[in-house]
Amino acid sequence: MTLDANLHGDVLVIALHGQLIVGNRQALKQRVLDDIEAGTRKVVVDFGNTGYIDSSGLGVLVSLAKRLRELGGDLRLANLNADLRTLFELTKLDSLFQIADSREQALASF
C-alpha cells in the first residue's frame, strides 16, 4: 500500500493505493498523526484504489477519527467499493463514519 497526501484548503486528503491491512496500517496512522500534530483537523481518506481492509485497518480509522473528533475535527471516507461498504456495514462502523460517494462530496461535507 502506498498513499498520496494533499491539502485541499484545510482538509488533508489521503488517497490509498492498495489494501489497508495489518502489515501497513501503521504508515497511514503515523502520517495522519504527524499531520494532526502539525495542526490538521479535517481528513478525508479516499479508498478509490483499495480492494479490501482488515480489522487492523478498520481499527486505525476508528482510532484516528476518535482523536480528530476530540480535537474538534473529523475523519471522513470516500470512494468505497461494494466490498468495503459491506465491511463497514457488517461491523456497524457505517454508523461511526460519514461515508461519501466521491472525494468531492467528502470535501464538500466539511
Partner: peptide, 14 residues
C-alpha cells in the same frame, strides 16, 4: 464500537 481492536475473529466468523 469505538474500540480499535477486537474485530478480527468477528470478521473471520462472519
Amino acid at each position: 464500537l469505538e474500540r480499535e481492536d477486537g474485530r478480527g475473529l468477528f470478521l473471520m466468523r462472519t
